[in-house]
Design a protein around this nucleic acid. Structure first.
Lengths: 348, 348
DNA sequence: CACTACATAGAAAGCGCTTGCTGTGACGTT
DNA sequence: AACGTCACAGCAAGCGCTTTCTATGTAGTG
């Protein structure tokens, strides 16, 4: 039914071995023979059987990209950049690799299961993006899995994720702590003393690091933090909206709201507006990530730009072995404070 | 080196066949034997060899999702919904399937190559999202490819894409034409007579259909279109910004700007503001898609909501054979006009 | 001109798994 | 008590490709 290598070989009057060699092009084949084979391939409309090839060669051209939420541009941008470098079809890379992105939805189990699936497929490389989950058992399981993947020859790269020690993985870590500190420092510099903070989900490293940065800035300026000023939520607009209302309820005298990311900040802006407060006259708002839409908020969002595309591209190159891994297996990627209209001095 | 089925069999004191059957669970195996096998699997930390399994069984658990731009939430939302239904790991589906999203970047060649790659992997199903490219040779090539995939047993579903006749593909098509007509009709109803239109790239079906809807609305109200009122660009913010400036240059008397999608509309808003024009007092702006951020624009964007998540979910279910295909292999998914603050009557 | 060296092509042995078919005891039936 | 039935388990034949090793024709060398 389906055309196989043997069929092509028969048609081209050569052995299957020769056809294989023509297709893989790593063995001398006379030009005339090659052409005959190629012609047969074309005429029969032959398509290599991936699994068979992977089995025999004990390698595969699959590269996995794990993301927490594919609908979030934060991940979409990184994934796109990674994929572009992996080369997918048409990319600059020579060999064609199937770069696939897997959506974990932030679930620990799915993260692990996808890794197993990729291990099954004997993936050539795996790139994990975004923050990790801070749950000891899960982290141990992940580390063990990553270790096993690395041992099996799969290149493992972490992009925007803290280093996983002892796993052989290469990490491109975002300096969420530093960015958070700089951002809150900026607000304090403007004169703010009562700052609300809308954090992400509790158990994520990204959440913790950004919050730590925020607190470090407060501490550095001798501002004592009121526990009422911090609310946890998800990394989305809705959560930002609700958290802001909660913050306002707890302490209406806040003069600034720092959000875990830009989507949350947008929600915060909406909540403030709906509460009759002006931005930044009454309350300043700051985000994080600098996603494309942040500049379109009115007023434009002050935020910390993370070079998502650049980091993703680099991760992709490292995964393909086209760029050397950073010394020590880890590189810290810094953010850049983008001061825009959503922050100003407090009203009084 | 790596653990194989045979190793597990040896350890559990059974034949490889039995181990395989335990793992696939579609053949009676005595409970005691099963347990012994499972124990051995666990102890040896055995991971099935995907390619070998796929080769022997002549099937694979890979499902491909093709998107034009993974960094665009339009595709991200659909892809996420599809993937959730495919069941990826942890999904509701029983068998674990590796749902992978492939980023074509809108390039015809990459689209085709990804399809070949998926064909190689003997993918169980393929879902193509977003508009198609209107280039006869490419379309013919695509159709042939889809036909071949379908013939090989791969289920092919088009989500938000026009039907591909004679290919055996099932289509969930967005009613871009109807949505566009309704949107422009709304603007005309408000009293606008001079409407600028920022279209997407020329060769995409989505672009053409939305534009056709726009023109149909104009025609229906007896408004003669000025060719200067239409500008083509990409589906992004930047393009919307530039196109709007161009539109303003060509005809400063325009009272409304209709954008190809929400990102473009956001860029248009920015350009108008930067030109000293108020929205909607001086110029009304309308988008398309109703992406999550559209409601956060100030003023909130009037747009056509496309049920991306719902359509994606349905496409996913059909791809998995968990939902019946629509009669005739095609279903039209309608959009819903969302009237918000960015549109109002013209100034004069 | 005999002999070695090289460039190609083929034969064949797997890669690790699935599955149709063939045992083989333990039961149930007349 | 003899025999048909089941319920399991194993054998072995591939799935379609890669690759090592070997064979062969040709070219280069003294």
């Amino acid at each position: 039914m389906t055309v196989t290598l043997a069929d092509v070989a028969a048609r081209a009057q050569v052995s299957p071995a020769t056809v294989s060699r023509v297709l893989n092009g790593n063995y001398p084949v006379a030009a005339s023979t090659r052409e005959r084979v190629l012609k047969a391939v074309d005429e029969l409309d032959y398509v290599l059987n991936g699994p068979a090839s992977a089995l025999a060669a004990a390698t595969s051209d699959l590269v996995g990209i794990l993301v927490n939420d594919i609908a979030d541009p934060f991940f979409g941008i990184m994934a796109g950049a990674i994929q572009a470098e992996i080369g997918g079809p048409g990319g600059r890379a020579g060999g064609e690799r199937l770069a696939v992105v897997c959506n974990t939805g932030g679930s620990p189990e799915r993260e692990l299961t996808y890794l197993t699936l990729l291990q099954r497929q004997r993936a050539a490389a795996v790139v994990l993006t975004g923050g990790a989950i801070e749950d000891a058992p899960h982290q141990a399981a992940m580390d063990a899995k990553l270790r096993k993947l690395a041992d099996a020859g799969t290149r493992v790269v972490l992009c925007g994720r803290p280093q996983a020690p002892e796993t052989g993985a290469i990490a491109l870590t975002f300096d969420n702590r530093g960015g958070g500190q700089e951002l809150t420092g900026h607000l304090i510099g403007l004169g703010h003393r009562r700052l609300g903070y809308i954090a992400g989900p509790q158990e994520r490293t990204t959440t913790r690091h950004r919050l730590e940065g925020h607190r470090a800035a407060l501490a550095a300026h001798g501002i004592e933090e009121d526990p009422r000023w911090t609310v946890h939520g998800r990394y989305d607009r809705r959560s930002g909206y609700e958290a802001t209302l909660e913050l306002l309820r707890r302490d209406p005298s806040l003069t600034a709201v720092v959000a875990a990311n830009d989507s949350v900040a947008l929600g915060a802006c909406a909540a403030l507006r709906d509460s009759g407060l002006r931005i930044p006259d009454d309350v300043s708002v700051a985000g994080f990530d600098d996603l494309p839409f942040s500049i379109d908020a009115v007023p434009a969002l002050t935020t910390v730009r993370l070079p998502l595309a650049e980091a993703g591209a680099r991760a992709g190159r490292i995964a393909m072995g086209r760029e050397e891994a950073p010394a020590g297996g880890i590189a810290v990627v810094r953010g850049e404070l983008m001061v825009r209209g959503s922050t100003a001095g407090p009203r009084e």
